[in-house]
């Protein structure tokens, strides 16, 4: 349980890190599209600033989405079966877009600017998929142990 919790927090942090870095690059690409050039020091500074400024809210969004998604993935695998990793990847694939959709539906806006375009949302979702895949791999032994105990 403790190991799973630590892994969950670790994987949420990893997803946050990846999404935050990608997110900054999407925003900087938008700024470049206005005809402004972004140097490497400016890019690095912007990325670091976002890790501090955007990171906390991203972590909340991602971790709460993953929490629900992982619980569903776990029980879906348990009761429906199939490929366990695929269930977790499905969770990674859906939680962030669903959270954005819910925020848009209730507040009428997409709070994470980089997720406002299909390409941006796709890239962020890829980050979540990578993270959930790693989580699924790292928790594979736990899952097998549980199954053995149940048998």
């Amino acid at each position: 349980m403790v190991k799973t919790s630590v892994l969950f927090i670790g994987i949420s942090l990893l997803a946050t890190l990846l999404v935050c870095i990608v997110s900054t690059q999407i925003i900087l690409a938008e700024v470049q599209s206005f005809g402004l050039s972004v140097s490497i020091p400016v890019r690095l500074h912007a990325t670091m600033t976002d890790l501090v400024g955007l990171g906390p809210i991203l972590f909340l969004i991602i971790a709460s989405g993953f929490l629900i998604g992982f619980i569903i993935a776990k029980y879906a695998y348990q009761f429906i079966g199939g490929n366990r990793t695929a269930w977790f990847i499905a969770a990674g694939c859906t939680t962030f877009p669903l959270t954005m959709y819910l925020i848009q539906y209730t507040m009428g806006l997409t709070v994470i600017a980089s997720a406002r375009t299909p390409l941006g949302l796709f890239l962020i979702t890829c980050c979540c998929i990578v993270s959930t895949w790693i989580y699924a791999r790292l928790t594979l032994n736990n899952s097998n142990d549980n199954k053995t105990v149940q048998n």
Partner: peptide
């Protein structure tokens, strides 16, 4: 706007690293 701004996004994210251009 939004190429240059003195503000940041509600999420805490940068909108642009530039305040002038």
């Amino acid at each position: 706007w939004p190429a240059i701004t003195h503000g940041i996004d509600y999420s805490g994210a940068i909108i642009s690293p530039f305040t002038e251009a």
